[in-house]
């Protein structure tokens, strides 16, 4: 079954403990950004995942 879904239908899932980040709101394209892969230094971006659904985590281990 395929579900047609709009942006608004998942917008209420934002964790309200964190303030929204204007440049990274639902409905916006993720910025074009190539970064080195920590394993081998290879340039990598979200474009390498085109066609896939991605859960992106930006974090620090501290």
């Amino acid at each position: 079954m395929t579900v047609k879904m709009t942006v608004e239908s998942l917008a209420d899932l934002q964790d309200e403990r964190y303030p929204p980040i204007p440049q990274l709101r639902a409905g916006q394209a993720f910025p074009e950004l190539s970064l080195p892969d920590c394993a081998d230094g290879r340039p990598t971006s979200l474009a390498d995942f085109r066609g896939k659904r991605v859960l992106l985590h930006i974090f620090a281990s501290w």
Binding site: A26, F30, R50, V54, L55, L56
Partner: peptide
């Protein structure tokens, strides 16, 4: 920060 991003690179769920 966690973002759910679709196959076109569009953010669908933020945090």
């Amino acid at each position: 920060l966690t973002l759910a991003i679709d196959e076109w690179g569009v953010i669908r769920v933020a945090q």
